[in-house]
Design a protein around this nucleic acid. Structure first.
Lengths: 338, 338
DNA sequence: CGGTGTGAGTGAAACGATTCATACCGCCGT
DNA sequence: ACGGCGGTATGAATCGTTTCACTCACACCG
């Protein structure tokens, strides 16, 4: 493999000069610069990123750890961070914790071994300090899609309680008095917060807690949604509305019930969460709480960059917590046609 | 940052010994091993991956370059390769060329700079030799989702001509005599092959080429599909069936036409391609040609591993080309209820 | 003519791990 | 008592960059 030494020899200069051509071309005379570039082309030289990293002490990559790379919500979030990172000349390594705390820890160790420049991650567990490894290694990180104490870290999240409230009030306003809540694994903070918002809306409306019917699901995906839909059909009396912890579940629920001849929205109103592209693309477009994925990704990357290179190095870094407001996007799945 | 030297000092041994504890523990006495591990825990030492890489000459990662990380097809493919790579102790770095040849070249250079252990990629351009950079750098690579000459490289693909034929014959058998083909950018081999398969089926049926109505789309996503659907509605006479180059397009087409009151499948039969999860999850489940994403990902990773470490180092590596057979999955979008 | 400054290029140290030839030690067999 | 051997530990060389203190030549100025 051809290295900087070979280039130097070929061009008849020292290695330091070649390095200067690459990194501070203005300090090198025109003629030498040309000679070095000619040698580089001739030999097909490519810088070794690992050697640069070793010297620099850290890589030029960010890590992004999400709970499900198959969920379009996270795919969009990842695109947002990649965009911002690319503008700063940084790459992004996206990893999938698959909602497993063990996998999460594994990837975080990997990130430390790689000496990543910074990390964005959506923690799985709702308690404990999953980021300890990063702390010890002094790797800046931003918590994504979940708010944490600003004494701990920067974070970018959306207000899930508010979002759950939006969904709840929307359904209550339409006259529904018995609402199913289809939720994924209970250890996820987001899932609990959304229910909390729904519960408050129900309370505001002066209804008892039995206005909410919990339907647990194994995972947060379409097939779990189909199972949940089947269970929903078995309930008696059947709820007239269903709120799902995310859009994938809602799509699954809607499919099963639609198949069984239940008319959406007339017999059953359905509201999802996240507003992924497929919510809008459904044949009966899905009402959903818009969770601004791309913006979360972009803002979080921005905060991370600020933590990596403070614009004002004098005063130390102050953690920032951004909480975005979700919006209800009303579509046909919850609004009977006149 | 604490390094191997600090651990050695703390444990009262040489750096070589610490390295042995980490990499060949069987060569180190019990007592020393314990002392070293204690020192590691005490100091919170974490190996520097970049130093290992520098020494080894290559990283312990594979690169995967796909055309659209937002497309569930590629998300599933990525999960397949990650699974196989993880079993071999390798990580995967997933990048998005976004169907741009320039971005593709950018990522390939990045891969070379990183001295990745191997690369899987779905080439954008249908001609030329996009992998030249990898060749020069001696980085093994496997072409994914497209067949190439086995003298050139290993590849794993599905037979798109056959797939297009399956879709075509299915529609023709149902009596359709005027079929729209909604396709994405024409420079993609897959898009052209699928049309080719359709065209042959039409020919076999003894029909003229005017049985196919081309509807071009800007991209291969849902919103492009909606546009295409609108154009389809404007055609007169309107085709009675539509075959789409991928499922995202098909979902978009189906939504627009459904909205306009066109009954699927009675007034319009729709067939997609890839059989992503959302095809099955649609309210009117989408007939689709199953393109085995996870298997492509797994097989390609397997071939790559074989090229990296030949099981039989005696005889050089022989490139292999795997072509999988797609299957038609018939669902409601193309079969009128009795 | 001596002193000073400047711009261009040099060469060696450093980054943190791995690896390999070598040294050491105790023990066995002769 | 000595050679040899197996099992352990050592220390230096190495990977490919970047960086920085330095040299050198040349021009300029008083």
């Amino acid at each position: 493999m051809v290295g900087i030494k070979d280039v130097a020899r070929q061009a008849g200069v020292s290695v330091g000069t070649v390095s200067n051509v690459l990194n501070r071309p203005e300090r090198v005379s025109h003629e030498i610069r040309a000679r070095v570039h000619a040698a580089i082309d001739l030999l097909g030289y490519v810088r070794s990123e690992s050697a640069r990293q070793l010297r620099a002490g850290h890589s030029r990559m960010l890590g992004l750890l999400v709970m499900d790379t198959g969920n379009p919500f996270f795919a969009v979030l990842a695109q947002g961070t990649e965009q911002v990172a690319a503008e700063a000349g940084l790459g992004v390594m996206v990893c999938n914790s698959a909602e497993s705390a063990a996998a999460e820890q594994g990837y975080l160790s990997l990130f430390v071994e790689q000496r990543l420049r910074g990390v964005l991650f959506a923690p799985v567990a709702s308690d404990g300090e999953p980021w300890q490894a990063l702390r010890r290694a002094n790797i800046p990180f931003v918590v994504v899609d979940r708010a944490v104490d600003t004494r701990t870290a920067c974070s970018v999240a959306a207000d899930d309680v508010l979002g759950g409230g939006l969904a709840g009030r929307h359904l209550l306003a339409a006259g529904h008095r018995r609402i199913a809540y289809v939720h994924g694994p209970g250890h996820l903070q987001q899932v609990r917060d959304r229910r909390e918002g729904l519960a408050r809306a129900v309370e505001e409306a002066g209804l008892g807690t039995d206005a909410i019917v919990d339907i647990p699901a194994e995972r947060l995906d379409v097939s779990a949604g189909r199972d949940a839909g089947a269970r929903l059909l078995g309930l008696s009396p059947r709820p007239t509305a269903v709120f799902c912890a995310n859009d994938l579940l809602a799509l699954g629920v809607m499919q099963t019930t639609f198949d069984a001849g239940v008319r959406v929205p007339d017999d059953l109103a359905v509201v999802g969460y996240d507003d992924i592209e497929f919510a809008e693309a459904s044949l009966i477009p899905l009402t959903s709480v818009r969770h601004p994925a791309a913006e979360i990704g972009r803002l979080a990357a921005g905060l991370l960059l600020r933590e990596i290179e403070p614009p004002d190095p004098e005063r130390g870094h102050q953690h920032t917590g951004i909480v975005l407001r979700p919006e209800l996007v009303v579509r046909r799945s919850s609004t009977p046609q006149p």
